[in-house]
């Protein structure tokens, strides 16, 4: 590479930092959504970079389905304490208790879809006017058409056919009262970029991403973690296996990968050799061809 040229990760970093700073400058009351997954961890790392030596000037918000991996919660609390950041937690259980949503039943019951209501309620209650999320355009085909600054109407809905054109570095965050924006600072990152960046910046991750022994069972070719709230079919049996998470969501819909990867280098090797997308193991995307598009229109992450 020439002088005065930066590599692809540094260029993506510069773009994301620009977007995060732009949110802080254009909105009154922004929030950053935090799931404890690698994408939101990287996004939060970028936010710390954007404002150093000042603290991150907005809170984080975690939508807690109650069906979490314990490791994620421990990691979250440790990180918030170490960085002096405020993290608001909103519980899907509260939304259920208030009768705002009805819990799904059956073997594939998941709170994944219910989260959307908790999320939108959280945004409305706290009067957030911009919510930053770790969504990436390479994750799923409906996300490929998402803007950095994505306008949501007063119902929190996304209208994919009527998006604002986004040119150069000029982001239009103008809105009416009651509307809000979803902003995706790492839109242009791929799964591989995220892993390479974690390696380059030596970012600490929840232990779930590395190989560990866990009680699991198989369903429709996907390995799922055994947990008290998971209902097993008669044919399904719990086994102990060496697995790791390639993506972290709710326990009920996070597929695990058989893996011995112990270090970030191992993981990068594994991702490079992998022939299935990371969302290939996500039961929430398999519900229909347009599952993600439908959830996004309603106001999903």
């Amino acid at each position: 590479m020439d002088n005065y040229q930066i590599n692809h990760l540094r260029e993506l970093e510069a773009e994301s930092i620009f977007v995060i700073r732009e949110v802080t400058a254009q909105f009154e009351n922004p929030v950053m959504l935090f799931s404890g997954g690698k994408d939101s961890i990287v996004m939060f790392h970028l936010a710390r970079k954007a404002f150093w030596p000042a603290r991150v000037p907005f809170p984080l918000m975690h939508i807690d389905t109650g069906h979490n991996f314990q490791e994620t919660l421990e990691y979250r609390d440790k990180l918030m304490e170490a960085t002096g950041t405020k993290c608001i937690v909103k519980y899907v259980q509260d939304t259920i208790d208030k009768g705002r949503v009805v819990e799904e039943k059956g073997y594939n019951a998941s709170r994944n879809k219910l989260q959307t209501v908790t999320l939108l309620d959280g945004i409305e209650d706290m009067k957030f006017d911009a919510a930053m999320g770790g969504g990436r355009r390479d994750e799923e085909k409906a996300r490929a058409k998402e803007r950095f600054f994505s306008h949501r109407d007063e119902f929190g809905q996304w209208d994919p056919k009527n998006q604002r054109p986004e040119l150069w570095n000029l982001f239009n965050g103008k809105k009416n009262m009651g509307e809000h924006f979803r902003v995706f600072p790492i839109s242009n990152w791929t799964e591989m970029d995220v892993w390479q960046y974690i390696y380059m910046e030596e970012i600490e991750l929840p232990s779930l991403y590395y190989t560990h022994k866990r009680k699991v069972f198989e369903r429709d070719g996907v390995i799922l973690a055994a947990a008290p709230f998971m209902t097993l079919r008669n044919s399904e049996e719990v086994k102990e296996m060496n697995v790791r998470c390639r993506t972290i969501g709710d326990i009920t819909c996070t597929g695990l990968t058989l893996s011995e990867a112990n270090t970030i280098e191992d993981i990068i090797q594994e991702v490079a050799a992998s022939r299935v997308t990371e969302r290939g193991g996500r039961a929430d995307d398999k519900r229909s061809e347009a599952a993600m598009e439908d959830r996004k229109k309603e106001g999903y992450f």
Partner: peptide
């Protein structure tokens, strides 16, 4: 260090 080698790609 880590920024040379295979991370050293242009965009």
């Amino acid at each position: 260090g880590k920024e040379s080698g295979y991370l050293d790609m242009e965009l």
